[in-house]
Design a protein around this nucleic acid. Structure first.
Lengths: 199, 199
DNA sequence: GGCTTTTGTCTAACTGGTTAGTAAGTTACC
DNA sequence: GGTAACTTACTAACCAGTTAGACAAAAGCC
């Protein structure tokens, strides 16, 4: 927590973002959260856009670190742990407020190349992670042999994205979405023979 | 096109929304698009929030009319037509600008009950439409008998929502998402026996 | 028909509030 | 004394909503 002021401002940005949402996020909100003046924020970051771009880099680092911690002896376990992390984890993602703000940011992507570039990183990172786990599962025989890891990963990223959106837009239960996706994976990825025991 | 001024303003709102996005949408933008003054907009709609709520009602009506036109002799054809309408139809949905604006609106749902209520209508309408088609397919034997229509519809709505979000946030190809979802439906909904012919 | 009054539609100009960013100066440490 | 870190006070721009009134058509009245 004994960061340099620049990092402290990024952490304050996170808290301010959760409290006010992206649309209503002002430099003053961030400054207040960082216990500094508005001008100090501008001292470290030239513009609001500049600050936010660096904030997304900061988030990306945190997010990839989190996804890297995923463990499990089998691909199936690792995939389950990943779903849990991105769909239900409440301690890692302080919840609805942050997800809402991230959806606001996603909607701003077409207006801001720097944002779109970074959101694409997030998307691709998740895709690659799922594709690799799926490929390992296919190779080990745990997953159905005619599953194409890239196609399955693409589909799952889309569904996870949809779960995030629905959770915000129509206040849909995160748990229920988690269960539906897990069920899909169990039913359609896991190979037939070894799974019969599960039923 | 010879509507009353109130409706003309709603149509102007649609055009202004596509041009400026939701975040940057001002009463002036709408007024300019309607070739009227700012005060005239306020003459017909008390507040911006009021105008936008009525605009969403206007959109809902248009959207449900569109979804009602879906035809097809078999449930499979109807589901295919629905995917095409909600995922690729470019003449019905003037494209990226509008989808982007709608994602911005979705992100505002948690801050505005009137918006959330209406987005839930959209979500539920699509869900029910897919569930009914799926149920008809299961009943006729065209779809796998152990498909639960409600579960499948829920999953598909989530995936469609994800496709919309990814298209905006990471500029993902709509066509590719359409193909992935169609493939899922063909592989996992359609009953085994009658489908062998397709492969 | 001619006259006034009312009503519906609309506008220019203004108000009050907000915001990103800046300029100039202060404090604190080396 | 110089520099890094920081603040107060400001500017310029923007926006939702209001006000006061223009203009025309319709309605009521003689």
């Amino acid at each position: 927590m004994d960061d340099d002021p620049a990092t402290e401002i990024l952490e304050a940005t996170y808290r301010a973002l959760c409290q006010h949402g992206y649309a209503d996020l002002t430099i003053k909100d961030i400054a207040d959260e960082a216990d500094r003046s508005k001008a100090t924020v501008h001292y470290y970051y030239d513009s609001k856009q500049n600050l936010f771009t660096e904030f997304l880099d900061f988030l990306y680092e945190r997010h990839t670190e989190q996804l890297a911690t995923i463990e499990g002896d089998t691909p199936r376990e690792r995939l389950g742990a990943l779903f849990e992390l991105v769909l239900t984890d409440e301690q890692a993602n302080p919840g609805q407020e942050f997800r809402t703000a991230m959806l606001e940011v996603k909607a701003q992507a077409p207006y801001d190349d720097a944002i779109q570039t970074r959101l694409t990183w997030f998307d691709e990172f998740l895709f690659e992670r799922i594709r690799d786990i799926t490929a390992a599962g296919v190779e080990s025989g745990a997953f159905d042999e005619d599953v194409d890891p890239a196609v399955a990963a693409d589909f799952l990223v889309t569904t996870i994205t949809g779960a995030h959106t629905r959770r915000v837009a129509v206040d849909y239960s995160a748990e229920r979405l988690y269960e539906t996706i897990t069920r899909y994976a169990e039913d359609h990825l896991v190979a037939d023979e070894p799974t019969e025991a599960t039923h």
